[in-house]
């Protein structure tokens, strides 16, 4: 795994801070939307084999709700906002006043509302990162899926597929109250983006 060998402890900490700033702002945005406090777990930066990435949300076949954004600009990547179906229904109820009709499905109205919520959160995640790094990072229009976690997340691994069998994931979990999970943000920067992020933040790139 030559690609990741250069990412020693200090750089991993920098990426953790990247997750902290992005998700911190997104958590604030969600907290404002819901008018209640949203906590955030310390971001995890991990290099994981493809197969294990879906384990972070309950396994390959776990059914999740995901809003996906391709990040465009100076430091491209993939951004997922992932919710359990229950958390998704809860958000819809509190934010849009939509009453749960079907536990198992999401109507077009619900999907559209969830995409918009994802859009607001991803916007604040990325704009704070862009401010922090001085790099342009803009989300595409949101794509929504309600499906197996494996099938959804694999989509964000394609850029890493050319490099090897592992990907680097910046994972932040939102918590409501004690530890009820509200949602998770996964940022998977493209392999080329790391160097740009490090240069932008003044992290020395010396190769040994």
């Amino acid at each position: 795994m030559g690609f990741f060998e250069k990412l020693e402890g200090f750089k991993m900490d920098v990426l953790k801070e990247v997750g902290n700033i992005g998700a911190g702002n997104a958590a604030t945005a969600l907290s404002q939307l819901l008018d209640k406090p949203i906590d955030m777990a310390v971001p995890k930066v991990q290099i994981l084999p493809f197969d294990q990435i879906a384990e972070k949300v309950g396994g390959q076949e776990q059914i999740v709700l995901a809003v996906f954004f391709r990040v465009e600009g100076d430091a491209p990547g993939n951004l997922f906002f992932i919710l359990t179906p229950e958390a998704g229904k809860g958000l819809l109820h509190r934010l849009a006043g939509l009453v749960v009709v079907d536990e198992e499905q999401f109507s077009e109205m619900e999907q559209s509302a969830l995409s918009e919520i994802g859009n607001i959160l991803a916007g604040s995640y990325l704009s704070s990162l862009a401010d922090f790094t001085g790099l342009s990072m803009t989300p595409t229009v949101p794509g929504l899926a309600y499906d197996m976690a494996g099938a959804i997340l694999n989509y964000g691994l394609i850029q890493f597929g050319e490099m090897g069998d592992d990907a680097l994931l910046i994972d932040t979990t939102f918590l409501e109250g004690k530890n009820e999970v509200e949602g998770q943000f996964f940022l998977i920067p493209d392999p080329e983006s790391f160097e740009k992020i490090f240069i932008a933040l003044g992290v020395p790139l010396q190769d040994d």
């Binding site: 390959q60 197996m148 494996g150 099938a151």
Partner: peptide
Amino acid sequence: VGMADLNVVKESGIIRTTGLGSC
């Protein structure tokens, strides 16, 4: 069979892969 993986099974048994999206 994991992601980006392959395998074979002979005579009896089941072979499975989960969570195919664009794969």
